[in-house]
């Protein structure tokens, strides 16, 4: 009896060790290639200078400056608008599309799936050009809206604050819905199809089985996509640069876009860029922590 217990203990110790062996290569790579530069970045955020060789101690002045910097505060506000509107719409849409495409009786599934995935494979250069020309004053969208009688005169989408933000959100939804759908689809494969059939026999409506079967069972995947989308949106860069160039009057600029400018376009002030980046880390970290607390429970 005692012996068996001891063996079990040592065995669980062995499993624990095996676990560490499994995750060590990945953890080491991350430590060296991600954490080391991050720690450097953290240190530089308290310094000032144009090159690493002449960095001087600057205390928390970079952080104070950040909160007095109107452009950065604006970019912070813009980024949160994108985050609050775009992430929920996109994830819900992806979930609905995935559960529709998981239907066994549906025809042309392969086509639908590939078509919906396509946008995220499309290179940024082309999709920026397309979106800009679609939403230009004489573009496709204005033409349609005017023909339908919704608009009397063309609306300058990209040169108007609300319009510019709306186009960015639309572009994000368009580009990343299919991407998130992929994870939901692959997650759904682990749910037995018979569960749905049983529910159907029990008289559950499709809506009910969506909320009572699909959503709970996909919870780990939903958590993953929520954290990834939060991170992606708070570090949003491409759309701000390529669709609106942050305009008009910085009303659509994002934090990462501004950090890029302060690093490469403006007079080099790497310490300040680092300080702003650390703020992003804190923001995403906090949001992810909340999401983990809510969603990462093993039943």
């Amino acid at each position: 009896m005692e012996k068996a217990k001891a063996r079990k203990l040592s065995q669980s110790k062995r499993y624990n060790l095996t676990g560490w062996v499994f995750l060590t290569p990945a953890a080491l790579l991350i430590a060296v290639f991600s954490f080391y530069p991050m720690i450097k970045c953290f240190i530089y955020s308290f310094q000032k200078g144009s090159t690493f060789a002449n960095m001087q101690w600057y205390g928390i002045n970079n952080y104070i400056r950040m909160f007095q910097d109107k452009v950065f505060m604006k970019s912070l506000g813009n980024t949160f608008i994108y985050f609050l509107i775009q992430v929920p719409i996109m994830l819900i849409l992806a979930l609905i599309l995935a559960s529709m495409l998981n239907n066994k009786d549906l025809k042309f599934k392969g086509f639908f799936r590939t078509a919906i995935f396509l946008p995220c494979a499309t290179t940024l250069v082309s999709y920026a050009i397309i979106f800009r020309s679609l939403f230009s004053t004489d573009g496709f969208v204005n033409t349609i809206l005017m023909k339908l009688g919704i608009l009397d005169a063309p609306f300058a989408f990209l040169t108007n604050t609300t319009g510019a933000r709306a186009v960015i959100i639309l572009a994000l939804v368009w580009r990343w819905t299919g991407y998130n759908m992929v994870f939901y689809l692959s997650g759904l494969q682990n749910i037995e199809y018979s569960v749905y059939e049983a529910a159907k026999i029990d008289g559950a409506s499709p809506l009910q089985s969506f909320f009572h079967i699909t959503v709970p069972l996909l919870k780990p995947t939903i958590l993953l996509t929520a954290i990834m989308s939060t991170n992606g949106t708070l570090q949003l860069f491409d759309e701000s640069v390529n669709l609106t160039n942050g305009g008009p009057a910085n009303s659509s600029i994002t934090m990462s876009h501004y950090i890029y400018d302060t690093t490469f376009k403006y007079v080099p002030n790497f310490g300040y860029s680092c300080a702003m980046s650390i703020l992003i880390l804190i923001l995403v970290g906090t949001l992810a922590f909340i999401q983990m607390k809510v969603g990462d429970k093993r039943d």
Binding site: A128, R132, S133, S136, A156, L158, T159, T244, N245
Partner: peptide
């Protein structure tokens, strides 16, 4: 004439 802020729209 004010165009959109992109270069291609300006060229156009």
């Amino acid at each position: 004439l004010l165009t959109q802020q992109n270069w291609d729209e300006y060229i156009k």
